[in-house]
Amino acid sequence: MDRPRTTPVTTRTSVTAALGAVLAGALTALPLLPVPSPALLPAAEAGTAGGAVVARDVVIAVENTNATPVACAPDNKSYVLHAQLVGPRDEVLSADIPRMNVLVHDLATGSWFWHLRRRPAYDYAGKLAAAGETSLVLDRLGYGDSTLPEGNATCLGAQADMLHQVVQHLRSGRYRFEGSSRATPAAQHVVVHGHSVGAAIAQVEAATFDDVDGLVLMSWTDSGASSRAVDEASRQSATCLRGEDYVKTGESRKDYRSLLFVTAPAAVQRTALARRDVDPCGDALSLSQMVTTSTLTARDVEAPVLLLFGGKDALNRDGAAEQQRQAYSSSVAVASRTLRSAGSALPLEKSAPRTRARVLGWLSQLPG
């Protein structure tokens, strides 16, 4: 598919002005480049009914470009994204994988959100692997091991574009095991799972490029942001406009916990806090454009969609779930589920087993 033309760029000042207007209104309405080759890390393995689960480090070459309708300007340079393939050994080390799940994290987290190995009961990727599913657990550019020296060099439109590049590399098998010459498997089908802003990135990617076979969108609404969400976005924007490259989500550890969690066990929250990272200011400053684009392009999503919400999510207002369900007028099928007692971080809340069961049941109905 031909890539759409990049849209005009706005300035950082106009981004901030748009942020309050858009979110407040919502309350009421390539060749693979050479990569480094450090030593291959030992695989994480666990016995399951279907055999061993393995995790292998992979690297994916991308261009930090923006060919989506999100009006923002990246630096158009080449980077390497770091990720892990987590799944049954016979799939991860095979030539082809029937279905690959790509897990896309929020502003406030990183790849660890999906693969919390220190808390196996809440390891989303690990539990999916034990059920026979293979996942790519990705650090987006500027997060975790996918380092970006200048936090204003990327933006959410570029994050969606890079996700598209990742999907294409997975389909062709043109990515690499880190430090190994072994061939990587190609994915016959790709389903993208996104959490919060990661879900918005997945949605815009699917609407723009129409190259995925399904979307699992957690804790995201185009037009139901809470006042807490608006305040947090405005705070981050103001911090970035003072000249910062990176910004934290939540002013304090307590604030961070209350944005993400309601019922997550204390041990899980402690682990999350220990992994808490900063967000690239380019992402924070392009949030209003992402909200606008996500709202306008939801009707262009044709793939089947599973929407999952927490009934006590601090970032979404009441009624947002049903409103979001109605947005996907072109999707072949839309399913929705609200876990009443959960907050935003659905894979890490006490209801995580029910979240995974709903996802696995939905995946079982898809090709692959």
Rank of each mutant, 00 (worst) to 15 (best):
T184N: 04
P185S: 09
P185W: 05
A186F: 04
A186Y: 05
A186W: 03
Q188S: 12
Q188L: 08
H189K: 15
H189G: 09
V191I: 10
V191D: 06
V191E: 05
V191R: 03
G194A: 05
H195N: 10
H195V: 06
H195D: 10
S196W: 00
S196K: 02
G198Y: 03
A199K: 04
A200M: 11
A200P: 03
A200T: 01
A200S: 10
A200I: 04
Q203Y: 05
Q203H: 08
Q203M: 11
V204R: 04
V204I: 14
E205T: 08
E205Y: 04
A207V: 11
T208L: 10
T208F: 05
T208G: 08
F209P: 12
F209I: 14
D211R: 02
D211H: 06
D211G: 01
D213N: 13
D213W: 04
L215F: 01
L215H: 02
V216Y: 02
V216A: 03
V216P: 05
V216K: 07
V216Q: 02
L217I: 06
M218T: 02
S219K: 06
W220H: 00
W220S: 01
T221I: 07
T221Q: 01
T221R: 01
T221K: 03
D222P: 13
S223N: 14
S226M: 04
S227K: 11
A229N: 06
A229L: 05
V230S: 00
V230L: 15
V230F: 00
D231H: 02
D231G: 09
E232W: 06
S234K: 07
S234R: 11
S234V: 13
S234P: 00
R235Y: 14
R235T: 13
Q236Y: 03
S237V: 09
S237G: 14
S237D: 12
A238N: 09
A238V: 14
T239L: 14
C240D: 05
C240S: 07
C240I: 11
L241N: 15
G243A: 02
E244R: 14
Y246K: 14
V247W: 06
V247T: 14
K248G: 12
T249I: 11
T249R: 03
T249M: 10
G250H: 05
G250A: 04
G250D: 05
G250T: 07
E251C: 01
S252Y: 09
S252K: 07
S252R: 03
S252L: 02
K254T: 14
D255Q: 08
D255S: 15
Y256D: 04
